[in-house]
Design a protein around this nucleic acid. Structure first.
Lengths: 341, 341
DNA sequence: TTGTACGCGTTATCAG
DNA sequence: CTGATAACGCGTACAA
């Protein structure tokens, strides 16, 4: 039964149309396009001419189905709006494009269940690889990924038990290093402000690092100066106001988030609290803004763009069969000493 | 000749495996999954049980190929790093997920040729719709899109001659409104600083709006106080320093970019120039930061997230055949009066 | 309501 | 180096 195609976009040109036009078989067209070296000069030219004349666009869906390959990588971030994640996405995107792959992007809204739902639909699209920002997942997510045997890179934290590969930095070590740095600068009572720890290994690891550093520096910890707040400038401002007003001794606050730190600085400016005179401020992640406020904020540089690039590279190494070994790459971090601490 | 599948990820489970398991035909499985109402209660249950037992994940590539449909929308932004674009992406992403579609994202790096290359590969992936931030395109891009007859929404500017649909705001009107607003506030010599106009209809439209407003307000324009600079805080700082130092009369500067405006404000703070005492500052786009600096910066609110949502909605209306009419939706803008002007 | 036959557009395989 | 043929996994159309 001959079947008319569905309503979809204009009747598209198929490989056999090109073949007819060039007077060759479809197989020759396919080869001329995908592996030109395997076709004689003459035919290759004829095929190329036909392709551009009739404006043929190969159907990669059909190609992928037939070859049982895919050229689409899926990525899940907690939020598309977070500019830190954007850096990693950009790094991945750059490598994928260069290598002829596509990026399918979705956000989980910081929800593990949502991540699971996205992984499911991504697998249905037969993505060839997966990049996850989270390092914490539901059991079902782990099962799905394992069963599909899809290469995965986790980028949000140097996980001790990655699903597969990981290209990241240690949130624990970074937070520890910054806290020790503050201690070395002479600060004795250091507060800690972070985003909610629930379902977020990055936040909880930073907190662990902070505590480990206090311990190592011989400073005592105090839950009263460890705050868990929501995001935003205002939130950082409220946090520092509360800390400074309820604790006369506090001389530094480490914010595990750039926006929080800047919000805190603005609040100090409004209240006339000298920074670092009354209280020092340290931040996490080196966004451009931190270098431009006054005083410039001491922070940690995380190579987020490079993490993206490297992730895509190891993922494609695996996808293309160039390498089979599971990798765990520590991309490190760096303390950027400025004027706020 | 029976052919073994390529190396790809683990032998995946096919619809006929489910069918065998449930003791029905593949067609019944397909129906039970995609249109449960068309299958009797009993069989539906058996199918569902089989699906979850053996962990079947439908192959959407095959499904799309067969039905000649697609559930992937492509989007091209100038840069993934720009948080303004991120808002629109988030809006689109939210709607797509809700409706069972996927987002394929790429960035053109502000290059029209790169945009053309991406459109080509997107069409090869048989995306069902396209969202473009640019409103300027190469002739080849226009031809490709027209020939493929794919629905398109342009979101970066309310274009006078859209490819297809547009959901956006008028950069011209917005810039004009802000400039008139400054004039009404009593500022007489108003500078204008923007990103490069080359290949960027958004920037050039804003400049046109600025000039139209000056004209309407009876103020004379002067190329000496119209700057075209690169992005970044530092760049905004340099711009205002140059304007204020070379022009004693200048009393306000309209920055067509939030980062530039904040960079300018920081520079004024460093130099001790009161804002708006020595010079007023106005910005474009209402990012959180603008409300939190001191003084808070007068700016334009562009509903970027809503533009994303609405774009996805009209696109899917078209894709799903719910509507056929080309739409052009003006999402408007709003002046946010604060303390910097 | 369910099943059968066929085609979607491409590529792998093998024969020439 | 080139071509014929048979899949890839699923959905459409129609028959039962």
């Amino acid at each position: 039964m001959s079947r008319r195609r569905a309503s979809g976009p204009s009747q598209s040109i198929r490989i056999r149309d090109v073949a007819r036009h060039a007077g060759v078989s479809p197989m020759t067209v396919s080869r001329a396009l995908r592996d030109p070296a395997k076709v004689s000069e003459g035919l290759r030219r004829r095929v190329e001419a036909a392709v551009s004349q009739i404006g043929y666009l190969p159907n990669r869906l059909a190609g992928n189905l037939s070859s049982n390959r895919s050229n689409v990588v899926g990525m899940i971030v907690p939020s598309i709006l977070n500019s830190l994640f954007a850096n990693t996405i950009q790094g991945i995107s750059d490598v994928l494009r260069r290598e002829g792959y596509h990026l399918m992007l979705a956000d989980s809204g910081y929800s593990l269940e949502e991540e699971e739902a996205i992984v499911t639909t991504f697998l249905q699209q037969r993505i060839c690889g997966l990049v996850l920002h989270n390092t914490k997942h539901t059991a079902a997510t782990r099962r799905l990924i394992e069963k599909a045997a899809v290469p995965v890179v986790e980028v949000g934290n140097l996980s001790a038990s990655p699903l597969d590969m990981t290209v990241s930095y240690s949130n624990f070590e970074a937070a520890k290093a910054m806290t020790l740095h503050l201690a070395q600068l002479g600060y004795r009572r250091i507060g800690f402000v972070s985003l909610p720890l629930q379902d977020n290994e990055r936040s909880s690891e930073r907190r662990r690092g902070y505590l480990a550093a206090l311990d190592e520096a011989g400073l005592s910890s105090d839950p009263a100066i460890m705050l868990e707040v929501s995001g935003g400038f205002a939130s950082g401002g409220k946090a520092i106001a509360r800390l400074v007003q309820t604790d006369e001794e506090i001389d530094a606050v480490f914010f595990a988030g750039d926006v929080l730190a800047v919000g805190a600085l603005f609040e100090c400016q409004r209240r006339g609290w000298p920074v670092p005179g009354r209280v020092a401020i340290a931040s996490f992640d080196d966004v451009d803004l931190l270098r431009n406020v006054i005083p410039a904020i001491t922070t940690l540089r995380i190579p987020r763009y490079e993490i993206g690039r490297r992730s895509a590279e190891v993922l494609l190494d695996r996808v293309s069969g160039r390498s089979a070994e599971p990798v765990a790459i520590d991309m490190k971090f760096e303390i950027i000493q400025r004027d706020s601490a």
